[in-house]
Amino acid sequence: MTGELHVVRAGALTTVQDLGRPGHAHLGVPRSGALDEPAHRLANRLLGNPEGAATLETTVDGCALLASAAAEEGGGAPGPGHPRGALAGAVVRGIPCAVVTGAPCAVTVNGRPAPWGVPFRLPAGSVLDVGPAERGLRSYIGFSGGVGAEPVLGSRATDLLSGLGPEPLRDGARLRLGSRSSAGPHGGAAAAVPDAAPWAAPPGELLLPVVQGPRADWFTAGALRTLLIGGYRVSSASNRIGLRLEGPVLERARDGELPSEGIALGALQVPPEGRPVVFLADHPVTGGYPVIGVVPQEALAAAAQAVPGTPVRFTPVSG
């Protein structure tokens, strides 16, 4: 199947994402990729796609897409019908399917409710509407075969910092869908489809473990205490590059800047104004502001779903 999706409503920010392009930071290329990587992987697993197949990452208010006639897989039972209800446990081979994971939200196909977290059929001519996030921020829409954008350095991810990968979705744009066979070795397999996908509701407080360093010595002892007890909140200025925080400033023990050095995913960089920024997938690869600590990657999916105003607490962990 080499179908198409027409963008009816692009939403606030909807991008193509996969597992990103790690391994190119030395060329100035950010890692990029799905911010809530477990949700992205889950969407693909539910569809029998390889976990690296491209999905759509929505922000805050979802998006709406029209499946073009070409999206109907030849030989599949076309079924004018409304794909209501889950195909849980059903054989999905031959029928184009989609699934929504990540931030829970209302999902409809042609105005009829479709399940969240469970694959459903997406027949030709039907409109998939992924509603506003009810909790969290970012939903992931997977399609059997994946989104078929042109890969750049092995990834289809949209990188908003450096402009690599496909443009963010715009109303009226078209998206190609990949074929199952091109999606990878598991392409045709309608693997075991669970009845429902679990999703832990985002807690009222975002707990971020932090490994101190590499530049904690650029800050006063008081700043290190402030980081742990400071009462930070997620700022509305957060984006795919970083989770910005509101709260007390971290006092520096020395002035100036570092000669540019490599920055890791999850780095807690402190710009001159003093409030830390947690670097997410589209972060710059080198920088000169000191990094007081690093949040392990496993904790960043929760950061990607933390709405502005969410309290943030850092907890010290050892490297």
């Binding site: 970083g242 540019s260 710009p271 670097f279 710059p284």
Partner: peptide, 19 residues
Amino acid sequence: MSGAADPESPATESGERAG
């Protein structure tokens, strides 16, 4: 994140020691 807009901005600046 502010450093990405420009190679001369502070977040991507390099100090004098390198040279």
